[in-house]
Design a protein around this nucleic acid. Structure first.
Lengths: 226, 226
DNA sequence: CCTTGTGAATCGTTTCACAGCC
DNA sequence: GGCTGTGAAACGATTCACAAGG
């Protein structure tokens, strides 16, 4: 079936973990398609995504039924179905705020464009950084943020500023109409109703690792190096 | 009782979400301490971490009991308790593999050192990149990876290589003794038993955002209790 | 045979509610 | 009175198991 977006469909709440797995499945489907495979089973998708076939089928079942019993899924059909589900059937404009190390790296990150995300501007408050060329972009003064958001109408802001500046910038960009923010500052942020913020917190990821190592040594039966 | 590592206690499994919140609490406690506050309640911690006071107390209860009824927690004591829980009571050596945009940015990221993570090497397979200075480090040839891991004994590898190279490098560094990996390549990786891998997948984060925006527009509304 | 799609059962996490203590 | 610590209840996600259909 291909009517996964039946009109008037009332979508129940979808878990973040489900959406994250769909993103993984899509990546695998693209590889699989490039290698010339035509169909794929939930079990193969599961092996790649580090999950189970039942989980794959359950994830997809929230949005429709895309496979054929006894056959599996048609790779190309499932790819475009997941693209549609994730909202990748269109292109998205992204503005990066903060042209430090991370912001500058992201401005040049190819992963954005290959997925339909177009970086349309990068901003910084530091006069020394303004005018720096990054790929086809130039760092703009952050005083131009509101007017540029009004003009370019980006959907997403990627925040790469120091923690102490982050909340002020959330307030400014949401005031200018932004409703989706990806936050690289390692501080929790508050946004008005209707604005989605996702955090990428490298410090937390590292600490989850060190927690894991530390606990292994304390609790499990692994040998300790002298 | 302050002994969150009671002897003979076999540590039950701690949820990743709990560890992530502990990391947030710690950040808030550091701020709070710097501002001269001496005590803090679970409710205050909860407000910062975007959770509930019961959740804060439950998170801490897995490790011991750190507060005083009627009083709350002593900021400094709770800080050092959480540091100990997360394994931050020591310093950690980190090796970065891949000196592209992201790897180079991370090599210069101050967030590492302020938390006790010391970057001791950065490696790349591209001859053009070898010798590039980054802060106090120089990009080394990835052929030196195994011998340097044996010599420097880093605990953590941060992987910033293209997806197609990532699995090979996991195999190499785990073979050389690494047991914790932070993966920035947007591909799932397999590692032997006893090795922890955490993934930071920017593409997935962006797609969770676009899924959210797309679904909102489709008319999913959330009723809030007054 | 084969594999999907899905209600039911299981498992894990969060929230509730209150006893215990300052 | 105020706040922690914690079993019990509620909730949500994953896994099971099987009917349905190529």
């Amino acid at each position: 079936m291909n009517d996964f977006t039946s009109p008037g469909d009332h979508v129940k709440h979808i878990a973040e973990s489900t959406v994250r797995r769909l993103s993984l499945y899509l990546r695998f489907l693209e590889d699989h398609d490039a290698q010339g495979h035509v169909t794929i089973s939930s079990g193969e998708l599961a092996k790649f995504g580090g999950t189970t076939s039942a989980q794959v089928r359950k994830d997809l079942s929230f949005f429709g039924s895309f496979g054929k019993r006894g056959m599996g899924y048609t790779v190309k059909d499932l790819m475009s179905a997941i693209r549609e589900i994730l909202g990748l059937g269109r292109s998205w404009s992204v503005v990066i705020v903060g042209a430090g190390k991370i912001g500058a790296a992201l401005a040049q990150y190819r992963g954005f464009s290959t997925r339909g995300f177009k970086v349309v501007g990068i901003y910084d408050a530091d006069p020394a950084k303004i005018g720096t060329p990054l790929n086809s972009l130039t760092v703009c003064p952050d005083s131009a943020l509101e007017s540029d958001i009004a003009r370019l109408k980006p959907e997403i802001v990627v925040l790469c500023v120091p923690p102490e500046a982050a909340q002020t910038l959330v307030d400014r960009v949401t005031g200018a109409g932004i409703r989706a923010i990806l936050n690289f500052a390692s501080v929790p942020l508050q946004a008005p109703e209707g604005v989605t913020i996702r955090a990428v917190n490298m410090a937390a990821e590292l600490e989850i690792l060190t927690f894991g190592i530390t606990n292994e040594l304390n609790g499990l039966d692994e040998d300790v190096e002298p």
